[in-house]
Computed example of a mutant assay.
Amino acid sequence: MDEETHHRIQQPTQRDDAVVVCALCGTSAESGTTPPTWICSVENGRHQYFCEECARTHIRAIESRLDSAWW
Rank of each mutant, 00 (worst) to 15 (best):
E4C: 07
W70E: 13
E4Y: 06
V21H: 07
M1Y: 06
C51P: 02
Q11N: 13
A55W: 02
S64H: 12
R15W: 05
R15H: 11
V21Y: 02
R15F: 10
I39D: 10
S64F: 08
T34H: 08
P12G: 05
S41R: 01
H6Y: 15
D2C: 11
C54S: 14
E52N: 08
C40V: 04
D2L: 09
V20D: 06
A23Y: 06
I62S: 05
H47Y: 04
R56S: 12
M1D: 06
P36F: 10
C22D: 09
W38F: 06
W38D: 02
G32L: 01
V42S: 09
G32E: 07
Q48T: 13
V19N: 05
P35N: 14
A55C: 07
V20E: 09
C51S: 12
R15E: 11
W38K: 03
A23I: 00
C22G: 12
L66V: 00
T27H: 10
T13S: 09
I9F: 10
G45P: 00
R60T: 10
G26Y: 08
V21A: 06
D17G: 10
T13K: 05
E52W: 08
V19Q: 08
P12E: 09
E3A: 15
H6P: 02
W70C: 06
E4D: 12
M1A: 13
V19M: 04
T5D: 14
R65H: 15
I9P: 01
G26A: 11
E63T: 02
H47T: 05
